[in-house]
């Protein structure tokens, strides 16, 4: 008797699950979040794709902040001004600040005065993910260093580990300091770390990162570093490029043409 009952429950449960699954598949409106399934034709293979970015500092000039404004708006990055509580995903740094170990003696003054875009390098050997005690920050199958805001305990070890200063902590509640709420990406809570995510929420929809798309000078090139015939690889082969602090062995995925 009890055996039959267990069998019945098992089958009923499976049936219900299958029904739900079919409903979600048949009627896309049933699914909690719509996903472009064409991006998932193949099962992700770790290490097959490595997203990277190439920044042409020759084109990125002046006081243009299109990419920063667009990124910070899209991702609901709060604005605390230039205070100690500042949160930022992408910003401009002086040449010598971005490349402190690069040669600066008798360097072209125009180069020394350049403002360089700085953001998370999505390192192939990230020190931050190693330091994280809960795997809240981790390297994805496509090379993106991501953060699970719901698992982060706010110990800020990743911030101490990052040699690029790419990570921000929510020292205060970020929500009241979001100027214009965006529906493109969730807001965060107080007490967790955040940073650039290479727009993984856009990549899944086959769109380029917001900063790349918004750049009026087309100074940002995004692509798969593991694909030898990709535009980014061709440009890397054809130009003299730099990574930030290559001596640390972190293998940044963000490159710069000087």
């Amino acid at each position: 008797m009890s055996q039959n009952r267990r069998e019945f429950l098992k089958k009923a449960g499976l049936g219900a699950l299958a029904g739900l699954g079919a409903a979600a598949g048949l009627f896309p409106a049933f699914a909690l979040e719509q996903t472009d399934m064409s991006n998932f034709t193949d099962k992700p293979v770790p290490g097959k794709v490595r997203w990277g970015m190439l920044i042409d500092t020759r084109k990125c000039l002046g006081n243009c902040t299109e990419c920063i404004v667009r990124c910070h708006h899209d991702h609901n990055v709060p604005d605390f001004g230039k205070s100690k509580n500042e949160v930022k995903w992408i910003w401009k740094s002086g040449y010598e600040n971005a490349f402190p170990t690069a040669s600066t003696q008798f360097q072209n003054p125009e180069v020394l005065e350049r403002q360089v875009l700085t953001l998370c390098n999505h390192c192939a050997e990230p020190p931050c993910t190693k330091a994280c005690p809960t795997e809240a920050t981790f390297k994805r199958w496509d090379g993106i260093v991501s953060i699970d805001y719901h698992r982060c305990i706010g110990c800020r070890f990743c911030m101490a580990a990052c040699p690029y200063g790419s990570r921000s902590f929510n020292w205060l509640d970020p929500r009241p300091n979001i100027k214009e709420l965006s529906t493109a990406y969730p807001t965060r809570m107080r007490g967790v770390v955040e940073k650039c995510n290479f727009c993984s929420e856009r990549l899944v929809k086959n769109e380029l990162p917001a900063c790349v798309e918004s750049c009026p000078e087309k100074a940002l090139i995004f692509g798969d570093l593991n694909k030898p015939d990709s535009e980014i690889r061709k440009l890397l082969a054809a130009n003299e490029t730099m990574q930030r602090k290559p001596e640390l062995g972190t293998l940044p995925s963000v490159f710069y043409i000087i």
Binding site: A131, T134, A136, R151, C152, I153, G154, R156, F157, V192
Partner: peptide, 22 residues
């Protein structure tokens, strides 16, 4: 020092031997 002390047990829930904090 923790931003989310309510989640401190995540350290035991997701043990990460690569992290010195663990």
């Amino acid at each position: 020092d923790m931003g989310r002390p309510d989640r401190v047990l995540n350290v035991l829930l997701y043990p990460s031997p690569h992290s010195m904090v663990f």
